[in-house]
């Protein structure tokens, strides 16, 4: 199914942050691959490394405290981690774009939205001021902002959160990037607006063929949008599979917990899902991860093995991997 050469490939990514409490490994061995025109979902609780994965792909990790230790980020074969800063500036906004969680604060308050969209176009395509503003209007129409010719001159504070997120999408897609990273794009929005934004993303993806990495803590959003899902916990990928596969037979206890947290994902929930539950405990501090599985303290199935050694990913089905000792016998280690 995923036979074609991947558009974006991340291998064995390691990122560390130096804090006063010690060095925190915020990403550990993260790998992913993204096909053109597809959507990859990354899911997990806050602080598990989803956003850091996105920032690392863009190479926007703040560098004094942070450090990309190892790994590769290959865009169409080119390793971005080895690229010059100048080359990275060309890539950002043109090949890979990003939209953020907080539409209220992610737009510069002192420039009109038209200027902010046009700026990207001028920067990457060298268009004139006039042509780039025309493109901005065109993009605002594409994201279904009414009266685009008038609103292009408006400032962020004059728009609602949903409108601002549309502007962010327009800005991100203005140079027709091949990859769009959407970091919790709807978390700050009302439920009805969330659905609209997702519909818009799907529609634009069909039109432009942009591949999307959708980051969310909401399994429901992922289920709706993504072709494949990656579940992250404490800086590691704990399970990965096609969306349907993961929803139907989640393997890792953490994934099962996440799915059990979501009410009514299906019209008729299978009886074995039981009542709505929560995962006890919180994500551990990344500075005091032991040698064992980082989910062990919160896991019902934890054994001494879990607490002493971290499990590698085990194949648990067709193109389905889980990092949990429960599946050690089930497949090849």
């Amino acid at each position: 199914m995923d036979a074609a050469a991947p558009l974006l490939e991340v291998e064995d990514l390691e990122v560390e942050f130096r804090t006063r409490q010690g060095t925190a490994r915020v990403l550990d061995g993260v790998a992913l691959s993204l096909q053109p025109g597809r959507t990859l979902g990354i899911v997990g609780e806050s602080g598990c490394g989803k956003s850091m994965t996105a920032l690392s792909i863009m190479r926007l990790v703040p560098v004094p405290p942070g450090r990309i230790g190892a790994g590769a980020v290959r865009l169409k074969g080119e390793d971005l981690l080895q690229a010059s800063e100048k080359r990275m500036r060309e890539v950002r906004g043109k090949d890979i774009s990003m939209i953020f969680q907080e539409p209220m604060t992610s737009l510069n308050p002192v420039y009109s939205i038209g200027d902010q969209i046009a700026e990207t176009v001028r920067l990457h395509e060298g268009l004139s001021r006039r042509d780039s503003l025309d493109r901005a209007i065109e993009m605002l129409k594409a994201v279904h902002i009414p009266a685009a010719e008038r609103r292009v001159r408006e400032f962020p504070h004059q728009m609602s959160g949903g409108m601002r997120q549309r502007v962010m999408i327009a800005m991100a897609l203005a140079c027709r990037p091949s990859v769009l990273i959407a970091d919790e794009p709807t978390t700050a929005l009302d439920v009805t607006v969330q659905a609209q934004v997702f519909d818009l993303l799907k529609e634009l993806q069909e039109k432009t063929g942009t591949a999307i990495i959708l980051i969310s803590h909401d399994m429901g959003a992922i289920a709706e949008m993504a072709d494949r899902v990656m579940v992250m916990y404490a800086g590691r990928i704990v399970e990965e599979a096609a969306t349907d596969e993961i929803l139907e037979s989640p393997k890792h206890p953490y994934t099962r917990g996440l799915i059990a947290c979501v009410p009514h994902m299906e019209e008729e929930p299978p009886p074995e899902r039981g009542a709505l539950t929560e995962i006890p405990g919180v994500v551990p501090a990344l500075t005091d991860l032991g040698s064992g599985c980082s989910f062990a303290p919160r896991c019902d199935h934890a054994t001494d093995l879990c607490r002493s050694r971290a499990p590698g990913p085990f194949a648990v089905g067709a193109d389905h991997r889980a990092a949990c000792w429960l599946y050690d016998e089930a497949g090849a280690a």
């Binding site: 060309e90 953020f100 920067l123």
Partner: peptide, 12 residues
């Protein structure tokens, strides 16, 4: 602030 991150993500 967030909008500075946006500006960097644009490739400025």
């Amino acid at each position: 602030s967030d909008y500075i991150r946006t500006a960097r993500a644009k490739g400025l």
